[in-house]
Design a protein around this nucleic acid. Structure first.
Lengths: 188, 188
DNA sequence: TAGTATATTGAATACATATTCAATGAATAT
DNA sequence: ATATTCATTGAATATGTATTCAATATACTA
């Protein structure tokens, strides 16, 4: 393994550790020393790999942004199926690929006011509720979805999902719910 | 107005300002100087009214705990109605008594790991999901509620509500959803 | 093997922010 | 009226934590 690859490995280890801690304890309550201790490595070395704590967050969110592209790779399905399949995938990830799941949670957290500006802008650069409101509109036409402003329904849905995922990230005793429970929010 | 009353007023003003900021920007990103500037008052004076920032948070959460008692004052209703009425009340509060609403959001936030221990313990001292799982169980008996572990359903419901309320607290363009959308999570 | 680049450490520094404090003004009591 | 208590300020201090840095070890290059 080349030195460059080594470095890349180490960077990833830091990123994954930071992701865990950011999601479990929150960005501001996670200290650089906490991340360093968990990797483990000295605190000073952290700055050999990342310019700053904010930079670390920004890189994570940028990765997360890439990740949102996997939505595009989902096979096209009817609106009635889209949300259920998406949630199924997401909740399965929570067991098989926790980092994908945590990334999703982080993206939601970083969108909130008060988070470091640069990272926040990256997180806000994809507007999921707007995208999925089109799917909801289609579902309403076909009659399976409940009446109501599609954007409001969409925001409500994703806000509920965010709340549930944060609970999952933090409460180890809590098992992922059935996707259909949550999709019921949208259906007639 | 006596001096004692004056002081009480001022304390309340600080508490309400802090509540706004804590909910909108998060506890750790809200600086004492931010609260002081918003009240407004000098930063030093803050410590004439409260021992510390953590103490301020703890007093807020203690108030919130009192507030949970208003649930007991809700007229007894059938399980199918309980959640819908509760949400209706909560969402109405978001317009008429924003502080009650924000308090609810804050309680949820302070329960999370990484928040100051004393305040967190107070917030955790009431276990809403456990309480309402009994109502869900009753609703399942009567046939209106969907199948599934009552506690898991209960946690899911409140996690979704928390997510939606945080969205409301932060996104001024977002209008409160219809309670029935969310209650659909529990119903058959 | 010698020399150069990279990785690593932990202590020193810089910085942000919570908290204290000495001084001043305003209200209340005697 | 004077004394006493409380409210208020803003600057000084303490504290916690991000960041830098000089020193050392380790890995690569020729």
């Amino acid at each position: 393994m080349t030195r460059k690859e080594q470095k890349e490995e180490r960077r990833k280890a830091i990123l994954m550790t930071a992701l865990d801690l950011f999601v479990e304890r929150g960005y501001y309550d996670t200290k650089i020393t906490d991340i360093a201790a968990a990797v483990p490595m000295s605190t000073g070395l952290m700055f050999h790999y990342f310019e700053s704590k904010e930079d670390l967050l920004k890189e994570l969110v940028t990765m997360g942004l890439e990740g949102t592209k996997f939505v595009d790779s989902m096979p096209p399905v009817a609106p009635e199926m889209f949300f259920e399949q998406f949630l199924k995938m997401l909740f399965d990830f929570s067991a098989t690929q926790p980092w994908v799941f945590k990334m999703f949670v982080l993206m939601g957290q970083v969108r909130r006011p008060g988070m470091p500006e640069e990272a926040r802008e990256v997180a806000l650069s994809v507007d999921t509720p707007k995208v999925t409101s089109a799917i909801i509109k289609a579902g309403q036409k076909s009659g399976a979805f409940r009446k109501g402003d599609p954007l409001q329904l969409s925001i409500t849905f994703w806000a509920a999902v965010q709340g549930i995922m944060e609970e999952m990230a933090v409460n180890k005793d809590y098992k992922a719910p059935e996707p259909e429970w949550i999709v019921a929010l949208l259906l007639k």
